[in-house]
Amino acid sequence: MKYGAPFLAVIALVLIAWLGSLIPGMQYVFGVVFPYLAMAMFLYGFIRQVVYWGKSPVPFSIQTTCGQAKSLDFIKHNKLEAPDTNSQVVARMLLEVLTFRSLFRNTQARIYSGPKLTHESSKWLWMFALLFHYSFLVVLIRHMRLFLNPYPVCLDWLEFLDGIFQIGAPNWYITDICLVTGLVLLLLRRFCQTKVRYISLANDYFPLFLLLGIAITGILMRYCLRGNVDVVAIKQLAVGLATFQPTITADIASIFYIHLFLVCALLVYFPYSKLMHMGGVFFSPTRNMRNNTRAARHINPWNPDIKPHSYAGYEDEFREFMVDAGIPVEKELPAKQA
């Protein structure tokens, strides 16, 4: 089953962390050893993958032009969609990375509407993706307060903004809700849209389940099982991890270890999976190249030495016809023998 197995895998991870953290002495393994190991594997894997990509050259300039190229003076150049300079490329890439521009493009004018159609706006995917990615980013930044001591004051501002609606006690963060909503919507999309469901693989469900697991355990910790969670001890551990002097001072609830272990799993899984699209998007030759290939030569490092079928060979084969037809030749016909 494409989604059954990944789901069970995440459940298994939860169980491992839960049961494992209950064994005396294993807290250190789950709280210190695994995080270091996972971080090391993440960094190694990430760098390895980027180097692996970087090792292959970009032989041809294959940008996809999505607008008018730079051309004659009176033709308006679309600088973002057919960039001509490096700064235009940077602008195009920034829009792509920060606003998912290509997904946004996924718009279609609906001119004809038959009898009651289920219109599925094409912007959904873009919205879900934005919702998830930005929530995740903010949540990640908020977590920095655990690792930094003292933490920068801007984290306070961020937390204030994130909790500005002042709902519930403890105050709910908007991004926590958005993160889970985003993930659930992305998951539902995979389940409900036949087309997407058909192309989805286990590798598409696993990260969604894993991230949901992380988000749910995190939320449980903050809002529901708060009484059992010793935040001071966690902060101490986190700062310790960040400063390479990890200590576990008190018993921390299993839910924390589950959360942490799932994060470790994510870190290990990340570089070997499609999640590397985070790095890959910067490398995409159809987006990150200038559309100036006629103005400046792009170099192919392995340009093979291939000569055309030579003119001389061509003329040798057809000289007689060419002379007959009055087409100029390099070498005249040999004088006719009597």
Partner: peptide, 21 residues
């Protein structure tokens, strides 16, 4: 794969979002 970075990137990055379908 060794000659074309595009191939590596296109092999590794797809998340099967279905936008192209």
């Amino acid at each position: 794969l060794d000659k074309f970075r595009s191939l590596k990137i296109f092999m590794d990055c797809c998340v099967r979002c279905g936008a192209c379908a």
